[in-house]
Amino acid sequence: MSAARASAARAASAARAGPVTPGPAANDVVTTGFFRARGRRMSKPAIVGLMLPFFSLLVFAFLYPLMSLIAISLTEPQPGLANYARVFENPVYATVLLRTLRIALLVSLLSLILAFPVAALMARSKGPKLALITACILLPFWSSVLVRTAAWAVLLQRNGLVNGLLTGLGVTDAPVKLLYTQGAVVVAMTHVLMPFMVLPIYGALRNIPTDLARAAAICGAGPARAFREVTLPLALPGVTGGFILVFLSALGYFITPSLLGSPQEMMIATLISQQIRESLDWPFAAALVGVLTLFVTGITLAFGRLFRFDRLMGARA
């Protein structure tokens, strides 16, 4: 039933494709198989069955608590937008919000710069070499974020390794303040979040057939030009994917900024935690959550519109 509908839909879309020629013949090789949509359809019960566990978790552990918080922010102590007004009235909170955006952007850009070459190397490697690089990328996941953050604290402290190196090499006369700075927060967060940038870019690069680079070269494109004209546009979905992943993770980051930053580096997640645990101001904390959620949604939608993945892939009919 649904298969018949699907083939009817395909026939209809083929008919829409244009009057100049009929669609690709059935016995013809239609594409290189490179971004081809999967033709097989699943039955509805199968789809529901496969999605149910994840969806239940999403609803009970994410959507329900989030909605409850938003409800609190709008109803307590009195119904209205008073809590939200407070967020924007007090410049301290606006500053924290802007700082959070700035740090998240810095972390994303730094991750991108560091991740792209690694992903490119991975895409050209295979066998043990690829396994080794992948292991290096995933190695940090074997320890908790807390441990990795603590390691940065050890490295960056006044008598730590980095200061030892700097003074030893004569770069600085006395130990420099490295810990509890925005730099420390950015570097440590980049370290933790970089794998989320590497993997999507690697995936996109690996899907680019090697012959495309050859085709670009024989067409007269030097290596830099071929990268700009062919590799980069085709890797863009991976780059944007990784960027969104890292940026959004960084927006809500908690442990690293609170351990490696001073109050001057406070990010919004720390502020929310403070409101809940120290000020016991649930309604205001909930309003902050609401603002953060609004930002995240807005940024995701903006990215989606900006890069138009569908167009990039030539899905435009």
């Binding site: 290189t32 490179f34 012959d211 495309l212 024989i218 007269g220 071929a226 062919v230």
Partner: peptide
């Protein structure tokens, strides 16, 4: 890229992000 020769590959190797016209014009753009 400096040999100025044409080549056709086994698997078409058209640039999937470019239109047919842009694919054909690619060597001229270069």
């Amino acid at each position: 890229h400096r040999r100025n020769i044409g080549m056709v590959f086994q698997n078409y190797t058209l640039f999937p992000h470019l239109s047919v016209a842009d694919n054909v014009a690619f060597p001229l753009k270069m």
